[in-house]
Design a binder for these strands. Sequence first.
DNA 1: CTGAAAGCGCTTACAG
DNA 2: CTGAAAGCGCTTACAG
Lengths: 345, 345
Amino acid sequence: MPLTLEDIAHLSGVSRSTVSRVINADTNVKDETRQKVLKVIQSINFQPNLAARGLATGRTNVIGLVIPAGVSVIFTDPYFPQLIHWLAEPEYERRTVSQILHNGLVDGVIVSSTLMDDPIVKSLYESKMPFILIGRHPSLDVNSIDVDNIHAGWEATLHLLRFGRKRIATITGPQNQIGSYDRYQGYVKGLSDRDQPVLPELVAEGDWTEAGGYAAMRRLIPNKPDAVFAANDVMAAGALSALREAQLRVPEDVAVVGFDDTPNASRTQPPLTTMRQPIQSMGTLAVETLIDIINHPGSETRQIIVATELVIRSSCGTLKSISEGGNDKKNPVNLSIPTLYQHHQ
Amino acid sequence: MPLTLEDIAHLSGVSRSTVSRVINADTNVKDETRQKVLKVIQSINFQPNLAARGLATGRTNVIGLVIPAGVSVIFTDPYFPQLIHWLAEPEYERRTVSQILHNGLVDGVIVSSTLMDDPIVKSLYESKMPFILIGRHPSLDVNSIDVDNIHAGWEATLHLLRFGRKRIATITGPQNQIGSYDRYQGYVKGLSDRDQPVLPELVAEGDWTEAGGYAAMRRLIPNKPDAVFAANDVMAAGALSALREAQLRVPEDVAVVGFDDTPNASRTQPPLTTMRQPIQSMGTLAVETLIDIINHPGSETRQIIVATELVIRSSCGTLKSISEGGNDKKNPVNLSIPTLYQHHQ
DNA sequence: CTGAAAGCGCTTACAG
DNA sequence: CTGAAAGCGCTTACAG
């Protein structure tokens, strides 16, 4: 149970009214009293209930934004990101965690955080606020929904190996993010399982952006990779640009595999082979699961893993190109395609 | 002042408790009573105060979404749009207007609606809820912030005329949107002011999307335009694709002017001349103005017009290309560039 | 400078 | 099936 004004009042030996005055920066409070109360408030990180305040004052301090034609348009027309750019200002963001999360205005939260040890997750975990993580947590037993990134990275790498690629590079995401770290571990495991060395010169860290993928690929090219596994499609697209610029053919000279299967993956030149995650379903499932968690306090922790699926397009060659690919007798190519594989477009 | 349960109780001749039961679909209400109460509720479109309900029940029925690195990433990585795709589902959207707007959870709203006569605007206007429109309203006296779309369309068209273009086409936005309608009116006025005919065959309506711009341009090409004014940059980009495909050179064969100056405008091939609106500032200004309106109830209506600015890149040729452009003695070219004009990139 | 008390608009046992 | 009453957690005159 969250604390109330009354609790703070008891703890600091004053009345509820005085606590309220302190919180609202009313000047009619003796400085000594103010300090005393403030100390208590800070020590237990008290957040006044905004619903109650809203009721009492008739003001909530929240404003709404109505956009036409639903949420979808804000992603198709670059006009909207700009229009709500103020949302990204530090002044607005700072309040998010402490204030919006623990002030009685939300029943639970979905956290799409991939940071290795995000303080938000820890504080949420300790606060008893219902929440679900999209991703996984390395140590805490929290509700989560995720793909098996290690397995997915492993599978992507193996796919490249099957095509006879010998110098498989990877463009990773930031390594302080667990999903990104896991994909890299999958890559390492894939190579190790086939007795291939993991060469540092073939590993470049990106930042999920197209520019980052482009830059990473530029760093890799001098080291002569014949394939690259990018930890997301956006960086893969950047890598394709760098390869094109360097006059390298995809997939003939360098095969490329991405991750996500975001809509643009099928529109790159050439279309991208990529590890699909069912992102939309994960979002929906997160909402549904969270609501269920809210409705069943004290229920068991849920850790949901959804399946990924390699979507084969042309950026890594098709099976017939294996013959061109410098086949290797020691690691015979497995010509059977797992049933999980599907072709798209 | 919004009505309360107590008001409904009086109006329907029952107690507050019963009204609450009806609203919460409690089965312990005589059917006759329920109908009576429901009728009153519907007749005045009563919305219970969610802050009060949240206080009473300890549940608000709102869930939060925490995303890493701030709001900005959701626009750069296509992962996020997919993750929150459920927000776009009708089930979630339906509640928006009536429920979220009039339930005491927001103090005011920004409406980015461009529809000619949006019912939301009307209902907001009647409800006394503080709000500000991004755009303008054809008849109601509402707070608004907008650019002068007529003037901007006029200026874009005149720019093309100055370059000696004779068959200036336009790709409009949906004509049931006022901003889009205004831009078209500006185009018409620009041509009329220079005694040029407005040819229906040179007018095509788009839907703001790249695909829509592409399709519109394909319809225009057979009618031999030598310039096109697109009502936004996204459609202009689509038009560029269609022109490239038709082997028409930009700007030599067809000059193109866009609208917005969204970030991609400088990255098209060739970079786009476009009418810049200060979208970010409009967003910020809308927030600030709304807060001010909330803080000063009963203050005068504010109608803010912010300036646009033609950003000249290469899609409409540079001044020296005027000499190639088949100058017209009757309409001498004005070689002086207004100081408002600026060159970018 | 401080506290007791009323009130914001709901929900929900409790009593009938 | 219905109503009176208490309570959710705040704020804010009012009295001292």
